[in-house]
Design a protein around this nucleic acid. Structure first.
Length: 302
DNA sequence: CGGGACTCCTGCCAGC
DNA sequence: TGCTGGCAGGAGTCCC
C-alpha cells in the first residue's frame, strides 16, 4: 500500500472518523511491530481525543489533546480498517466501504484495535510488521529521529526546482535512488519514483547531480521532474492510490492508480506513449526493481 | 561522508 | 496438485 498517495488516501479516510473523537479503548495483540510500541502506549492513547490528523512523507501524525503526537508508519503491508458500530459501511465511497462478514473478528495480523467513544473501531493490520507506531512528546515532532531528517514534502510549497537542485547537487547516486531517498524527498517509493522519471523522460541511471548545473542551478530536466512528481502524486491521490497484490482483498477500498501505471510492473509490455514502440524494461537498482522505457527515458539534464 | 548490500517478516505466485 | 524459491509498496544498520 504505502507510498505518499496511499498514505494520504488513508489519512483522508481516517480523518472524518478519528478527529474529534475520544479514544475509549486500545487493544494491542503484541508488544511490537517493527520496533516495540512506546512505554504505556495504550494508556497514553486511552481517554485522549485526536485533534488533527496530518501527514509528513509516508508518516501519519495524529495530534492528541494531551499534546503528544501519535506517529504511524504503514511499512509495506500496514492498513487500517474502519468498523462502524453496526458493522455496516458508514459512508459509501470512503476509505472503507465493504465491511467483512465477520466484522469485529480479529485476524492473525490485526495488531492494534482502537475503539472510539462512538463505537467505531479502527483496526490496524500489518502482516509483515514493517509498520511503526510511536508517541512523540509535546513539541518533539521536529526532533523525532524518524521524521527530523525527512526531505522535501513533494506536495508542499518548498517543492520546487531550486530546492531540489540544492538536494541533488553533488549527488552521485542514480536518479532512481535519489528520488526514493526519504532524506531528499519524503514520500516517493519504488512505484512513484519510476513513474515520475518516465513522465519526465529521464534515465533512472544518470546521477542526480546531472540535473544541476555547475553553478547549482536546476537544468531543464529537473524542472520537468518537479512537474512530473507533482502530477503523478496528484493523479494517484485522486483515484485513491495504488493497490497491488491485495487488490481483491475485501479489507478496504482498492485504489485505482495501478491501472494507470506507465512503467511500474509492466516489464515486457509496450510503452504507452503513442508512437514510441519501446518495450518496458526491468532492472535491479540498489536492490529494488526499476521499470523504465529505454526509448523515452534517455535524457539527462536538458 | 556517500552509497550499496543486507536484514527484518509474511504472503503470494510462477515454475518446476 | 504441491512444494519452493524468488519477489514484494519500506527503511534502519552495517560496511566499504
Amino acid at each position: 500500500m504505502p507510498e505518499l498517495p496511499e498514505v494520504e488516501t488513508v489519512r483522508r479516510g481516517l480523518e472524518p472518523v478519528l478527529v474529534g473523537r475520544r479514544i475509549r479503548r486500545v487493544d494491542l495483540a503484541r508488544k511490537d511491530l517493527r520496533r516495540p510500541f512506546p512505554p504505556h502506549f495504550a494508556e497514553r492513547l486511552r481517554g485522549r481525543t485526536v485533534t488533527s490528523l496530518a501527514r509528513r512523507g509516508k508518516y501519519l501524525l495524529a495530534r492528541l489533546d494531551s499534546g503528544e503526537t501519535w506517529l504511524i508508519h504503514l511499512g509495506m503491508s500496514g492498513r487500517f480498517t474502519i468498523i462502524p458500530p453496526n458493522g455496516k459501511p458508514r459512508v459509501p465511497g470512503e476509505f472503507y466501504y465493504e465491511a467483512p462478514a465477520d466484522a469485529g473478528a480479529r485476524g492473525p495480523h490485526d495488531h492494534v484495535v482502537i475503539e472510539l467513544e462512538d463505537g467505531y473501531r479502527l483496526v490496524f493490520t500489518d502482516p509483515r510488521r514493517f509498520g511503526v507506531m510511536d508517541l512523540i512528546a509535546p513539541d518533539g515532532e521536529e526532533s523525532h529521529p524518524l521524521i527530523a531528517d525527512l526531505g522535501i514534502e513533494p506536495l508542499g510549497n518548498e517543492m520546487n526546482a531550486e530546492r531540489l537542485a540544492k538536494a541533488f547537487r553533488g549527488k552521485k547516486a542514480p536518479l532512481k535512488a535519489a528520488l526514493s531517498d526519504q532524506k531528499v524527498i519524503a514520500g516517493l517509493g519504488n512505484i512513484y519514483s519510476c513513474e515520475a522519471l518516465f513522465r519526465a523522460g529521464l534515465s533512472p541511471f544518470k546521477p542526480a547531480a546531472s540535473l544541476v548545473t555547475k553553478a547549482g542551478a536546476p537544468r531543464a530536466g529537473l524542472e520537468r521532474l518537479v512537474k512530473a512528481i507533482r502530477e503523478v502524486l496528484g493523479e494517484a491521490i485522486e483515484v485513491g492510490g495504488s493497490t497491488l497484490r491485495d487488490y481483491a482483498d475485501a479489507n478496504g477500498t482498492p485504489g485505482g492508480f495501478q491501472t494507470l501505471f506507465s512503467v511500474y510492473d509492466r516489464e515486457g509490455e509496450p510503452c504507452r506513449r503513442p508512437g514510441c514502440g519501446g518495450i518496458i524494461k526491468r532492472v535491479v537498482q540498489s536492490g529494488r526493481s526499476t521499470f523504465y522505457c529505454p526509448r523515452c527515458q534517455r535524457r539527462t539534464g536538458s
